[in-house]
Simulated scan of single mutants.
Amino acid sequence: MAHEGGRARFHRLRVAAVDRLTDDSVALTLAVPPELREAYRFAPGQHLALRRTVDGAEIRRTYSICSTAPAHEAPSSLRVGVRLVDDGAFSTYAHKEIAAGDELEVMTPAGRFTLDPCPAADTAATDTDAATGSAPTPAPTPVSGHYAAVVGGSGITPVLSIAGTLLERAPDARFCLIRSDRSTASTMFLEEVADLKDRYPDRFQLVTVLSREEQQAGLASGRLDEERLTALLPALLPMERVAGWYLCGPYGLVQSAERALRALGVRRERVHEEIFHVDDGGPTRDRGAAPAPAHSTVTAQLDGRSGSWAVEDGESLLEAVLRNRPDAPYACKGGVCGTCRAFLVSGSVRMDRNFALEAEETEAGYVLACQSHPTTEKVELDFDR
């Protein structure tokens, strides 16, 4: 993935198609012009932030890329799924107003909920990296073995890209998709998932659970809770041979799946999570931190330039930086997407929520600027690391 200056940036992309998936979801196909294709090269599982301005207020929302990552060339198009949210400022716009031919402001790909390692294409790397002019990155280790995902609702979107890319590039790999939806009519990307099953009948396993509709065959309806998953997963898969688990969807489902995997002895480093929906009252992951000081200052390194600014009472570090550097990276401001990830150089912070960073990242010193509040008089962040 190549970003100008090493960081995600917005460009205007033309909408090539708007496809209705269900009554409350659409897929947007975005055309990428040749001069921007390297900037939009993506890893399977990454997302795009879309931006619009309404009555002087900027609205950003993140949507995962569902396309299979091209094996050789940078992408000429990108496809994202958008589910309608009650009173959603952007999703309502996407469903009612966006049409083919429109232009949208689209951030270059971001996110770390990715296929790791991503199997290399079957041709040699080019002599140099087109975006940086540097020597090419060595090809990732070939991927084989079992991979699996537990998804709910629109959580299928990034996993569709992960599964499609893995199966296309790694002929020895297998993928098991366990998906939960309310009903058949509400299930996104039915045709695309069916196509994977048709193309890879021996290597792609699909298990569907509907919470509000009985199926003629397959599993009984109902929610996929921890108890059910703990019993189901070993019956479907050789647990010890699954190299990577991808959990994506609403907070409750992801947490249930995580607890089930922990109970089944799966190592933490094999589990990757992305939360799509978190209620405002959702739990925090940083409790017991020191209270905020009376006065505090944040110093931020961003695109090679540094500045120091006062943090106003109740303000997050991201908000303080944005007042002075509007180009600071962010998308959701909800602790979910990870776009505002920064390295904590000095000082200490309290994070209200963290649904984006892995434990290894927080242990290494990374924080979400949108959720971080200072607990020392001086805090220094580095957005460039």
Rank of each mutant, 00 (worst) to 15 (best):
T165I: 09
R212A: 13
S211K: 08
V106P: 00
E4W: 10
A185D: 15
A290I: 10
E269S: 12
H72C: 05
A71P: 02
R323N: 05
R79W: 01
L233H: 00
F90R: 06
P201Q: 12
T157E: 13
V15M: 10
A310C: 02
L190F: 03
S211M: 09
G88I: 00
L317V: 03
R37M: 11
D127V: 05
C118H: 02
P109Y: 12
Y40D: 07
F175L: 00
T187G: 01
E319N: 13
D202E: 15
S183D: 13
L50D: 11
E274V: 09
P34C: 03
E97A: 13
S372E: 04
A89F: 02
T165H: 06
I59F: 12
A100M: 11
P117D: 09
T126G: 15
A94F: 03
A131Q: 10
D202T: 15
T62F: 11
Y366A: 03
M239T: 04
K96Q: 15
A163K: 01
L210M: 14
A89S: 13
L21I: 08
R52C: 04
L224E: 05
P283D: 14
G6W: 06
L167T: 05
V106T: 02
P291C: 12
T362K: 13
E361I: 07
C118K: 07
P158K: 08
A369Q: 01
L318C: 09
S186C: 04
R20N: 09
T230E: 13
S346Q: 12
A220W: 04
V209R: 15
L237T: 00
A94T: 08
G145A: 08
A331D: 11
E58C: 07
D382G: 09
D181W: 04
V254A: 13
L28E: 09
S221Y: 04
T187K: 02
P109G: 10
H373A: 07
A328P: 01
R385P: 04
Y246H: 14
R350F: 02
G155S: 10
P234Q: 09
E73M: 03
P117T: 11
E58M: 11
V311K: 00
F343A: 12
L322H: 14
K197P: 00
R37Y: 10
G335T: 07
R325Q: 14
L344M: 11
R305G: 04
S77W: 05
A359Y: 01
H373W: 02
R267A: 15
S348Q: 14
L232K: 08
L21V: 05
T29Y: 05
F383H: 05
R212Y: 08
D23G: 15
V367F: 05
E361L: 08
V150G: 02
P34H: 12
L219Y: 06
D225P: 06
E361F: 07
R182F: 01
V159C: 11
L232P: 00
G314F: 03
D384R: 06
D55K: 00
D279N: 13
E213T: 09
V32A: 14
